[in-house]
Amino acid sequence: MIGQIVAIIVAGLVIAGLIAPREALSWWRRGEMDEPTIRWPSLDEAFGHPGDQPDDAVPAALPAEQGHYLVYLSGLGISGPDELPVVEIPLVERLAERIGRTRVIWQIYPYSVANTALTQGRRFSRVWQALARWKFEKNRLRALAFGINLRNAFQMFVSSDRRYGPVFNLAIADQIAAALIRNGYAPEHRRPVTLLGWSGGAQIAAGAAWYLAALGIPVRVMSMAGILSADPGLDRAQQIWHLRGDTDKVQSLGVLFFARRWPVFRDSPWNRARRDGRLEIIRIGPLKHAGKGGYFSAAPLLPDGREPREATVDQIVRVLVEAGLATDRAAPERG
């Protein structure tokens, strides 16, 4: 019986893996990019939606340009671009409140090449809707909601794969470029952009950095407990910060999974960045990956009396301020 269950799970994983690259490859095959390179989208394109979905109207005035843009790429639990996982909302809102001279952009689903929610406009939308609902219900089916994380994890592996990553990361970079335009980014001014990737989102950030740099953006990557490979995109990031909690074992999976981060591969983009002084690993206290005591949690309080999520925000803000990219709106009141 147990053997059969294991066999079914393995078969399910293999099938999920086999179809994982399909979305990115189909996107490329459809030829939505007529040339094998990236370009800035027009305003109409930036407010457009894929397929038959009606496009958003281009507003009369775009948001005012900011000196710095922080693009937040969520972790594996996200299911669409319009809604962050509940647990992440307070932290992202706090970041937006606190970071000065910066626009925080989070409306990107980093595990979909067309920024399409799992719960809308897909063949199995209803299944994903049910899974997304069960995530917040206390019943036996709740465990199945992990399917969303699993699906997104496969997309993370697609991003890290040398065969599919160039296509997948191109599409995500295209989505990020469109989001920047929607938020008032003026390409000709080349304002700095920091991609803040949480967990699996850090891999997507690293992958997209390659193409965003090709657009002329001074791009930086901030990995928040990121599970990321030694992606070639890191070569084009001006600075890489890898923030990690002392008790976070999950982020260590990145080192385990992605061999080219091992010191023996001296010429990998990760180790090259380390050697060049572009990669900084920052410990942010006794934080776990998720749950109580995790980066997003409000409790238990840390020995210094701060909430764990406050400690996370403090570190992100500190890094950005020290890099001269942003200001800390909370600094004066803290004296």
């Binding site: 390179t37 370009r39 800035w40 191109l170 090709a214 002329g216």
Partner: peptide, 11 residues
């Protein structure tokens, strides 16, 4: 594909 996206050459 990656090589065609040359560094800092916006189009």
């Amino acid at each position: 594909l990656m090589a065609s996206a040359k560094m800092g050459e916006p189009r």
